[in-house]
Lab assay of single mutants.
Amino acid sequence: MSIQHFRVALIPFFAAFCLPVFAHPETLVKVKDAEDQLGARVGYIELDLNSGKILESFRPEERFPMMSTFKVLLCGAVLSRVDAGQEQLGRRIHYSQNDLVEYSPVTEKHLTDGMTVRELCSAAITMSDNTAANLLLTTIGGPKELTAFLHNMGDHVTRLDRWEPELNEAIPNDERDTTMPAAMATTLRKLLTGELLTLASRQQLIDWMEADKVAGPLLRSALPAGWFIADKSGAGERGSRGIIAALGPDGKPSRIVVIYTTGSQATMDERNRQIAEIGASLIKHW
């Protein structure tokens, strides 16, 4: 067993022997301040990774656009098919120029040779490549099948209805392509620590998230040296922004954090800054 596999296998073990965790309302004060600064709703939840206990939450059962955070769930569904012998990570998928959609920095470079399922998941999570996500959605049967996968996990809230990039439209009061912070946090925890996926697939999923290259201005910008984070960000229309993450000190994750916002007129930089400040408060009061 590799060191990384050992780390993920012992996530519940280490967490069980940690000192009790206590909620700190100071972080919620910052979440509410972010709402004021952005002029928009902000949803927040913080779960203990081992027990699933909610440590703090704000608007945990209000719907927010998922945006690209759905790509972690998508690759979880792909990995479940791999575990069941219905898919192979090494299978190569070929596609054409007509398949390319807006923001496809990886797939646009491989029109000639195609990409493997493993490479597509890596591109979808680490670079948020939209064509990679659409190609992977095709392998599982489309958005409705991802929703069905989530329902089978016990998540009857999260739903995907459309493809990239239309799913980022974020129309107010439109339930399409949305989740709730509580539902997303619980589902992410199941994917990373539950028995739904094999140990190898859980490790692969967290490795992809740990290698995320496009979430630097968010929670990662607030992390002290030595902290662990595996995350996936999302951005959408109407001032929408979000991030889902597993993080913790001492090089291992111990909490799940989900943050979503929508309806702001603020710039992307300002949305990023507010999420980073929430992260800084979380870490300060850990």
Rank of each mutant, 00 (worst) to 15 (best):
S96W: 15
E166T: 11
E62C: 00
L100V: 10
G154R: 05
L38C: 11
A183V: 11
F70E: 03
P105E: 14
L223C: 11
R63G: 07
A185F: 02
T267K: 14
P249D: 05
N50D: 07
D83H: 06
L47I: 07
I171K: 00
V257I: 03
I243C: 04
L247P: 10
G52P: 08
E46N: 13
D83F: 03
R202K: 10
N98P: 00
L223M: 05
L79R: 15
L199A: 13
K232R: 13
G85I: 15
E102F: 13
L282Q: 04
L100M: 02
R81H: 07
L49K: 05
L218V: 10
W208G: 03
E56V: 14
I171H: 03
G43D: 00
M180P: 07
V258I: 03
E237D: 09
W227R: 08
M66W: 01
P60A: 06
W227V: 04
G248F: 10
K30N: 15
G43I: 00
K30T: 15
E210W: 11
C121I: 00
V258N: 05
G76L: 13
L55G: 11
I229L: 04
P143M: 01
D48F: 02
A235E: 05
P25I: 04
D250Q: 01
R92F: 01
E61G: 04
Q265R: 09
H94G: 07
S57R: 09
L160R: 04
E62F: 02
G194Y: 10
D48H: 13
V82D: 10
E26A: 14
R220W: 06
L137G: 13
V106S: 14
G90S: 06
E87R: 07
A40V: 10
A148P: 11
T179I: 01
A245N: 08
E46M: 13
S281F: 01
L38H: 01
V31Q: 12
R81L: 07
M153E: 11
T27L: 05
T116P: 13
M184V: 07
D33L: 03
T158C: 06
L150R: 14
G90M: 03
H156S: 10
L160D: 06
E119M: 00
I125T: 03
R271V: 12
P105M: 12
E87Y: 14
G43S: 07
T179W: 04
M209W: 07
S80F: 05
G154C: 03
G114I: 01
A170P: 07
G216T: 06
V82S: 11
E46A: 15
A123H: 15
S201Y: 11
E169V: 09
A215E: 03
P181C: 03
Q86F: 15
C121K: 13
F228Y: 02
A200V: 11
K53Y: 06
A124P: 04
S240H: 04
M268Q: 05
D113K: 06
I278W: 10
Q265L: 11
A123F: 15
L218G: 06
E35F: 04
D212V: 13
I171Y: 07
T186A: 10
G76E: 15
G194F: 11
G226W: 03
E46T: 15
S254R: 04
L197K: 01
R162E: 09
T27W: 00
T198G: 12
G234E: 12
L89Y: 06
E62S: 00
V106W: 00
K30P: 14
Y103T: 15
G52K: 14
V157L: 06
A246Y: 04
D129Y: 00
E210P: 14
K53A: 07
L191W: 00
G248K: 04
D269F: 08
H285I: 03
T147C: 03
A211K: 02
E195I: 02
G142I: 03
L135A: 04
I54L: 08
V214N: 07
Q37S: 14
D269E: 08
D48Y: 11
D99I: 10
P25R: 02
T107C: 01
Y95K: 11
A182F: 10
V42P: 05
A215M: 05
G236T: 06
G154E: 09
G226Y: 09
D48E: 09
V82L: 09
D174P: 03
A123C: 15
E175Y: 09
G114Y: 05
H24M: 15
L223N: 12
A148R: 06
L218E: 12
V257P: 01
R238V: 08
H156P: 06
L135R: 03
P249I: 02
A183C: 14
N50Y: 04
G154K: 15
I54W: 09
E62P: 00
P172G: 11
D113V: 00
P224I: 00
A84P: 14
A200S: 12
I243H: 04
A123R: 15
G251P: 08
D231Q: 11
L100N: 06
A183H: 06
A40L: 05
E61K: 00
A77D: 00
S264M: 02
V78E: 09
L28G: 13
M180H: 14
L28T: 13
R159S: 00
S221K: 01
Q86H: 10
T126I: 14
R241T: 07
L146E: 14
I275L: 14
T116M: 14
S68E: 00
K213V: 14
L191F: 03
T107S: 11
